[in-house]
Design a protein around this nucleic acid. Structure first.
Lengths: 234, 234
DNA sequence: CCAAAAGTGTTGCAATTACACCCATGG
DNA sequence: CCATGGGTGTAATTGCAACACTTTTGG
C-alpha cells in the first residue's frame, strides 16, 4: 500500500520571562491563510531536514539565536517537542500535520520579523490564553498544551534556568518560577530548595548587587536532568 | 512557498499486564521493508483521517477492541500521543513521519494478525528494552519513550486502572504498579493510598474471593484526572 | 486449626512550612 | 541610620514508610 502525501510543518511556542512577565512570541501573519491574524511562528519541514532541525531554523529566523549549526556560537536554547496536531481541515492549504515545539529563551533583544510574518511581538501568555479567538489555526490549543508542559516541568526539571542568562541569582531564578506559575513563593524557603537540590545550580563565588540590597551570589545551571526533591507549587 | 509532501504514519505501543508481567504487542512484519523482523504495529494516515483516528483503527485491527466508532460497544481503551519521529532516512520507503501513540489495554484475548503482519505476539517489555537491535526502524527508541511515559504517569494519574478490567480489587491494581515499575510495593500502605486518594477508585460494595484468602472489595475507576497526593515509586 | 490474603492502627523519621532573625550593601 | 534585598535557624506540622495486629475466607 502507498501513502497519501501530506504537508508537515513545525510550529514554535517560544516563551520568555521579561521583567516578571511570562510572554510568548507571536507573529502577525504577512501571507494567507489568516493574513493579518496573530499566530505562532512556524514553517514547513524541507525534504532533507529533520523535525528538530526545522524548529531550530525557524527559531533562529525569529529570534536570531539558537541555530544548531556548529558554526554558530549562539547560546544553547532549550527546545523540546510538545505534540503533533493533524486534524483534517486544520489548515485551509490542504492536509497539513504540525509538530509543535516548545522553546525557552532568556530575555532577548527585539524579535525579528521572519519571511511570512509582517511583525513579531512578545505578548503576555495569560492574555493570550484568556482569549481563545486570538490566534489563527488551532494555535490556541497548541499554546495551551505547551504552557501546561512548561509549568509542569519547572517542578521536576531544571528547566527554569533556560529562562535565565548564563549567570543568575537565586532571586532571578525565583522570579522565573513566580512569573510562569503566576504565584508568589517564599524567598527564604526557595533559596534553600534551589541551592540544596543536588545539581540544580552551582555557585560561582562572585556576587552582584544589581538587584539592590545585600549582594547576591551568582550561579550557573548545574548538570542535573531532574530535580530531587522537586520544587512544588503551592 | 509550497511544501514538500511526506508520508505520515502512526505507530502503536500497546501495553498490557498479564499475570504480573508487563508486555507489549509486537508484530512480525509480513511485508517489506524489514520483512520478517519485529516491529510496533502501525500504518499510514489516510487522506481524510485524523491522527488519533488512524491510531484507533490500527488498534482495533490488531486487538479487536477500542475502535472509536459509535457503532462499537467495545470498552474505551486509553490512547494518548507520545511523540513524533521524523528523521530523514528513518524509513527506506521515503520521507515518512511517524506519530507514536501509547495504548493501555486490560488482559485481552489472543491478538490478531493485521494485514501487514505475519503474526502478532505479547512480549515482555523488559526483554525488548534490553535488546536495542530487536525492533525494526527506530522502534526501540519509540518503545523506550512510551514506556517511560507510562511509568511516569502511573505516579500522578489514574492510568493504572486502564490495565484493569471494569471491576478490580486493590491487589489487582497494585499488581499493575508492581509489574510496570518492576518493584514490589507494601500491600498495606498501597491499600491506604489507593483508597484514600480522592477520585482514584470507587467501592462497589461487592466482594470477590478470586485471589484466595479474605474476600476483597471490588472497585471501579473514579473520576479523578490526576492523583492528589501522587503514588510514589520507592 | 492453619494458611493466605485483606485491611487497620501506630509509631518514628523526614520533609515542608511559616516565620523570627541576622547580614551586607546603597543612599 | 534606614531601606532593601540576601540568607540562616528553628519550631510546629504534615506526610510517609515500616510493621504489628486484626479480619475473613478456604481447606
Amino acid at each position: 500500500m502507498d501513502f497519501d502525501p501530506m504537508g508537515v510543518a513545525t510550529d514554535l511556542v517560544i516563551l520568555t520571562v521579561q521583567g516578571g512577565s511570562f510572554e510568548v512570541l507571536l507573529i502577525r501573519r504577512g501571507i494567507p491563510p489568516h493574513r493579518g491574524r496573530w499566530a505562532l511562528p512556524g514553517g514547513f519541514v524541507r525534504a532533507g531536514e529533520g523535525l528538530e532541525q526545522t524548529a531550530r531554523r525557524e527559531l533562529a529566523e525569529e529570534t536570531g539565536v539558537g541555530s544548531g549549526d556548529a558554526s554558530s556560537d549562539a547560546p544553547r536554547i532549550h527546545l523540546e517537542q510538545v505534540a503533533t496536531y493533524g486534524e483534517p481541515g486544520r489548515d485551509p492549504r490542504g492536509r497539513v500535520i504540525s509538530v509543535a515545539y516548545l522553546a525557552l529563551v532568556p530575555d532577548l533583544p527585539t524579535p525579528v520579523a521572519g519571511s511570512d510574518a509582517a511583525s513579531a511581538s512578545w505578548i503576555p501568555v495569560a492574555e493570550v490564553l484568556d482569549d481563545p479567538g486570538r490566534l489563527a489555526f488551532d494555535h490556541h490549543r497548541i499554546l495551551t498544551d505547551a504552557v501546561e508542559r512548561a509549568r509542569a516541568k519547572l517542578e521536576y526539571s531544571p528547566l527554569a534556568t533556560a529562562f535565565c542568562a548564563d549567570e543568575f541569582t537565586v532571586s532571578e531564578l525565583r522570579g522565573v518560577y513566580e512569573a510562569v506559575w503566576g504565584i508568589p513563593l517564599d524567598p527564604r524557603n526557595f533559596h534553600r530548595k534551589a541551592t540544596r537540590t543536588e545539581g540544580f545550580v552551582v555557585p560561582l563565588g562572585a556576587t552582584t548587587t544589581r538587584d539592590g540590597g545585600r549582594p547576591a551570589q551568582l550561579f550557573r545551571r548545574g548538570s542535573a536532568e531532574t530535580l530531587h526533591p522537586p520544587l512544588t507549587r503551592g
